[in-house]
Design a protein around this nucleic acid. Structure first.
Lengths: 122, 122
DNA sequence: ACCTTGATTCGATGACTGTCAATGCAGAGG
DNA sequence: CCTCTGCATTGACAGTCATCGAATCAAGGT
């Protein structure tokens, strides 16, 4: 498989988890997997990229729609997209000349489930 | 004010935000503030600390309840607690000899609102 | 006063991260 | 085939981070 085809896959370790944080302590393994997702979202540029993709018409955005928004070079945007991809937050697909990214809702659902406050003891 | 009293305050920049990611693109300023919270949660140890505190009886845990769980030194745990504190995720209070931490639900609510999937275009 | 225990702060160090310039690869169109 | 454009990867560098040992602080007990 060529180097460039790889953006289609990379599903990222897929956490089997997701009790709310407050229900019972996270296992070490769950924490490691979850932390990857939070870490990927722990950068302003990546958060905005995610937001730009998610809010774009059709639920997907071409890389060319994203690079102009930031005062950053192409390689840097590409790097951030890769981090989001490896965290399972987005997936990319090449169509002709352009590469389109879309948000994978499962990863966000996971985060949502973990930070759920249903079980917070007050 | 003494150095040790400071754990009572440190409220952390307080994001005024929170449209779902998918509704409209995050502003640069919103992204910077939000990223601080996600970055704080982007470490396995800190995620487990948060979970241990949130799930502990009474909704709060003494530092002495936390240090034994990890294969890490006291100073390191203290460092991670400080990061969580500065992100506005937890607050600490000294009672006699011990310091008790509890989760601040507002920060989690913020995260929850941002990752909300209500507006995902499919 | 002194010592003990719990927790934070300081200083150092090795590892990781964000960024860019240079290079490489895939499609589209001469 | 060649070239041009869009995007990804590589390599390098500066800055940040996680971790520890040592020192410090706070509160209680002797």
């Amino acid at each position: 498989m060529s180097n460039q085809e790889r953006l289609l896959v990379e599903p990222a370790g897929s956490v089997g988890c997701c009790e709310p944080l407050a229900r019972e302590p996270l296992s070490a393994a769950q924490a490691v997997e979850l932390a990857k997702v939070f870490k990927a979202m722990g950068d302003p540029v990546r958060l905005r990229l995610l937001s730009l993709i998610a809010s774009h018409d059709g639920g997907e955005a071409c890389v060319c729609d994203l690079t102009g928004v930031f005062d950053l070079t192409g390689p840097t945007i590409s790097h951030h997209l890769k981090v989001l991809r490896e965290a399972g937050l987005i997936a990319g697909e090449r169509r002709g000349t352009w590469v389109y990214y879309r948000v994978l809702p499962d990863a966000l659902r996971q985060v949502s489930a973990v930070v759920s406050l249903d079980e917070i003891r007050t």
